[in-house]
Amino acid sequence: MRRAGLALAAALASALCLAAASDPAERLPDPAQEARARTLFKEVRCMVCQNESIEDSQAELAVDLRRLVRERVAAGDDDVAVRRWLVERYGEFVMLRPAFSIANLVLWLAPLAAVMVGGLALVTRVRGAGAETEWLTPEESARLAELVRTADGHDPAFKSSPDDPKA
């Protein structure tokens, strides 16, 4: 039992060490540049995992994106230039927090507008349901009254069911 506990602890410790040491061979020699790159990693979406940053993801694409960001930082690009380069290359989706734009506003407001239009249609429909509607023309109403009178008067031509005692 004790060996199993030790083995489990060793496995967890090695997993944590692996997670903490992301791309150790590729770290930038300048600590300030590495810190900037790591800050950018937290803002960039892993295109495989989609809701994880490339900082947290271990997918091959995330590793490649970390390498590319480090290259851009090492080349002297500032953070804005790196973000712009990523968006030009991969589209706005690559950023975990996309920049505000009219297109993004439309994406956020379209579902709200659809719900509002649906609610308005529902309210209009419910309010209109109370209005009296004539379903039959006067001729049809007269014909229906005649049929009901004939059925109540035990007309031999009208038999509602084979077991009807009135018939």
Rank of each mutant, 00 (worst) to 15 (best):
R2Y: 07
A4S: 11
L6N: 11
L8P: 01
A9H: 07
A10C: 09
A10G: 06
A11H: 08
A11L: 15
L12G: 12
A13H: 08
A13E: 07
S14E: 08
A20R: 14
A20K: 07
P24W: 00
L28T: 04
D30K: 03
P31Y: 02
A32K: 11
R36S: 09
R36Q: 12
A37R: 01
R38E: 13
T39Y: 04
L40G: 03
L40S: 03
V44S: 00
C46K: 01
M47L: 15
V48S: 08
C49N: 09
C49T: 03
Q50M: 12
E52G: 03
S53D: 02
I54G: 00
I54Q: 02
I54D: 03
E55V: 00
D56R: 14
D56W: 08
D56H: 10
S57R: 04
Q58G: 09
A59D: 14
V63N: 08
D64S: 14
D64V: 09
L65P: 07
V69I: 15
A74M: 04
A75L: 05
A75I: 01
D78R: 05
D78K: 06
D79P: 01
V82D: 00
R84T: 13
W85Q: 06
L86N: 07
E88N: 13
G91Q: 02
F93H: 08
F93A: 12
V94M: 04
M95H: 00
L96C: 03
R97Y: 08
A99C: 01
S101Q: 04
S101L: 07
N104H: 05
N104Y: 02
N104V: 05
N104T: 06
L105E: 11
L107R: 14
W108G: 06
A113M: 13
A114H: 04
A114Y: 08
V117F: 15
V117C: 15
G118D: 00
G119H: 02
L120P: 01
L120W: 14
A121V: 13
R125A: 14
R125K: 09
V126I: 15
V126T: 14
G130H: 10
A131M: 05
E132M: 03
T133K: 13
L136N: 09
T137S: 15
T137P: 00
P138I: 02
P138C: 04
E139F: 06
R143M: 07
R143W: 14
L144I: 07
R149V: 08
T150F: 11
G153R: 02
G153K: 02
G153V: 01
S160F: 07
S161M: 05
K166H: 09
